[in-house]
């Protein structure tokens, strides 16, 4: 095993180009477990801790450009307003110690369906900024990023530099089921974002299919139902039947398995419950802000 310690992003890209099998390590919260338990013996470890850019974020007009290694703790503390769904998701990641080290880049690189960030990114809308020495930068839409169980759209010579997440234009929520009240891997997870600007709702489901997925049929149904009932304008409570059908469609979007963490049947059920609850919470919040702005006006 060789330990590569690039001092800059350019050096990191050069090293990855020279050694495409090199395994990037930043927070180490996935890679080191595999090494400690003898599940993996990479030829090269590519340490990204000295690449300072990866720890920075910029809040732009439309999006937040979030460095791949910005620890979850920083996201929770600093980006709660801009990225509320991701901040909530960050708070559910493992333990404080892990949140201090791990970042979204690791979740994306590992592409485990259980990664906590995925449903929030899918719901908010995001693009993954990847780069190679040979071909430069490209932006991969989050919807195209997950290609299989623990597989992603990254080329062997590419590294994840940042993720561009759409700034929240409405309420967002995130729920995760685990069999413990802290420090637990998701049995399944659900992210939901209201986008009043485009009058759309986006979702993200974790740990209930081979990859993180959106519940597209559920989104389409809800978008149509909200439009039809004039809900965005009248701010009425979403009828229980609409909420229920949305929840059922979210359950139907799952393609889960039975494993030691839970049954497929439970995952489908729980995603439905979380879909209904997160829709209620976000919609209540939307109605609240509407009322507040009307009151102010």
């Amino acid at each position: 095993m060789d330990f590569l310690r690039p001092a800059s992003w350019e050096e990191a890209l050069a090293a990855k180009a020279e050694h495409p099998t090199a395994v990037p390590i930043a927070g180490g919260t996935d890679v080191m477990v595999e090494i400690n338990f003898d599940h993996r013996r990479p030829e090269y470890l590519l340490d990204l801790n000295r690449v300072g850019d990866l720890y920075e974020w910029e809040v732009g007009e439309e999006t937040v450009r979030l460095g791949a290694s910005v620890p979850y703790t920083r996201i929770m503390e600093n980006l709660r307003a801009e990225l509320p769904g991701l901040a909530l998701a960050s708070h559910t990641v493992a333990s404080p110690q892990i949140r201090n080290r791990g970042g979204v880049g690791g979740n994306l690189g590992t592409a485990s369906p259980a990664g906590d960030a995925h449903p929030a990114l899918l719901a908010a809308g995001a693009e993954v900024e990847v780069e190679s020495a040979a071909r430069g930068t490209r932006l991969i839409p989050i919807d195209d990023f997950y290609t299989g169980v623990k597989r992603n759209a990254l080329q062997p010579d590419e590294l994840i530099r940042a993720v561009h997440v759409a700034k929240a234009d409405g309420p967002q929520q995130y729920s995760k089921v685990g069999t413990r009240n802290a420090m637990v891997i998701a049995v399944c997870a659900f992210g939901l974002a209201l986008h009043p600007g485009t009058r759309t709702v986006r979702t993200g489901i974790g740990s209930a299919a081979p990859t993180p997925v959106r519940a597209r049929a559920a989104e389409e149904f809800l978008n149509a139902a909200l439009e039809e009932g004039g809900f965005w304008d009248n701010g009425k409570i979403i009828t229980p039947s609409v909420a229920k059908q949305f929840a059922d469609l979210c359950s139907a979007a799952c393609n889960p398995i039975d494993d030691v963490r839970g049954t497929a049947s439970y995952r489908r059920h729980a995603v439905g419950v979380m879909a209904r609850r997160t829709l209620t919470w976000t919609w209540e919040s939307y109605r609240g802000t509407r009322r507040a702005s009307e009151g102010a006006a």
């Binding site: 995760k176 009240n181 609850r277 209620t280």
Partner: peptide, 16 residues
């Protein structure tokens, strides 16, 4: 949420 079932995972605000 820390005092509710699900804890930090934010699964309920009292529902159910």
């Amino acid at each position: 949420v820390r005092q509710l079932p699900g804890g930090l995972s934010n699964t309920t605000h009292g529902e159910g």
